[in-house]
Structures are given as C-alpha cells and as structure tokens.
Amino acid sequence: MIEALLDYEFIRYSFISGIVAGLIAPLIGTFIVIRRLSLIADALSHVTLGGIAFGVYLSTLFTFTINPLITGIIFSILGALGIERLRSVYKHYQELAIPIIMSLGIAVGIVFLSLANGFNQDLFGYLFGSISAVSMNDLILIVSIGIIVILFIFLLYKELFMVSFDEEYANVMNVNRWIYIAFIIVVALVISASMRIVGILMVSALMTLPVASAMRITSSFKQLMILSVIFGETAVISGLFLSYHLNISPGGTIVLVSILILMGTIILNKLGVSRNGGRNEEVPGQTQG
C-alpha cells in the first residue's frame, strides 16, 4: 500500500480523510458516549443517508452534478436541530427523538433513491465506505470540517466537560445554552466527514468503539480522549491497509479492528491493568452504539 500511496492520488486522498476521521470521530465520540448520546449519532448518520440520496436525486434532475456530501451535511445539521428540539419536547423520554429522526432519515433516503432510479455503485460506497471514492472536493470538505471540529473542542473544552459531567451545575453556573446546539451540529459535521471512508452504517462505531475501549483503562477525561484517538487512528490505518490489500470496503475492516481493540482492552482489564480499580462495570455508554 505504501507504493500505492505514493503512486495514486485517490489513495492519498482516502488516506488523509481516514486520518482526519480517525482523529475527530473518537474525539467528539468521548463527549457523545459520556452524554449517553451514542444512538443519536446513529440516527444522524441515517439522516445523512437521506441527504445523500437527495443529492443523488437532484443530480439526475439537473445537468450539473451536486456533491451529495454537501446535501448530506445539510440534512444531518437539520436532523441535529430536529433532535435537540424533540429532546426538549419529550423531556422525560429523550431517547424517543432517536427512532423518530432515524426513521425519517431512512424514509427520505428510500424515497429519493427510488426517484433517482436506484442503487448504484456510488451509493454502495456511501453506505459501506470506499477507499477509491474520495475526490479532491471531498477531501477539502473533510479537512475543513476536521479543522472546525478540533478548534471547537480545543476552545470550548472546559464548557464541554462541564455540560457533559453535570448539566444542572452548568445551568446554575450559567454556561451558555447554545453550546448544546453547537455540539450537535459538530456531531453532524463529524458524521458527514467520516462517512466517506467508514460508510454511513458504521460511522457511529468509529465514534463510540474507541471510546468504549479507552474507558476501560483510563482514570481521567484527558487520558480518555487521547487514548480514544490512538485507538481510532490504529483502527483506521490498519483497516485501510487491510481493505486495500484484501480489496474489501474499508468500513467493515475499520470496525472489525476496533472490535479487536475493544476485546483486547477487556482482556487487559480482566488481567488487572486498569487504572481505575476495575470499577468500570458501571461505566456508561458501553452497551450503546
């Protein structure tokens, strides 16, 4: 693959997008997991599918093509705002927002796909990830999103930590409410950026599996973020190599490597390498995603 990286532009593009996804997905994933929003990431990725189908459909209507990634981003941001809204409508049943938005996303996707006359190779790439489909335009979008996400987390780390750890206290201390909306929009952006490589169906796995693994062996939040990124990058890089050499779609290989890492940490944990005294049976979020 090293030669391919040097020789083929499209492999380079995929590789760089993969590295970006392996960084930002687990980073934002730490906040998603501890805020118990793992399933929301899943719902949003299905809304992104609706947006992509819409983009594909629009392109069949007009003579020019519209990058479906852009309609995907727009849809997932709208979906994110919808989820926030529904979560405040169903205060005591916040998880209801998930099936509502998820089924809406899939329904919209199916309708536009049938209108656009079906299921082509492109779409297969969006669903399961693709190592050959990242265009220059995609790459620019993905890298820009990467920069936005990292700035967001770097600049608002304190506030994000606070609202994740103790929402009521954040409210008492008067931490700005818009941070919730900004957060969910950033989640939508991360999904769109990671989807090209990992695929819609497995995006939420890249956000949650590395975190679930890291949780078992860390004792501080900073450590959790760092370790999640290391696990995420390991999964993405080795997954891309496997995918290239075995000629299979990268989404599956990346997620399978993540699962292997997770199993490894569970075993390490059982052997007593954990830093937090083996108390992590109660760790939240592990069963989600």
Partner: peptide, 19 residues
C-alpha cells in the same frame, strides 16, 4: 451521577472554575 464517569478528581473540581 458521578458513578461511572471517567474523570479525575482534579478535573471535576477544576470544572467549578469554568464560568
């Protein structure tokens, strides 16, 4: 709600300075 949260004591106490 502190149960199961992956944060250290100093991170939690520091968060009081956020605002």
């Amino acid at each position: 709600f502190a149960k199961g949260f992956p944060a250290s004591v100093s991170e939690v106490v520091m968060s009081g300075l956020t605002k």
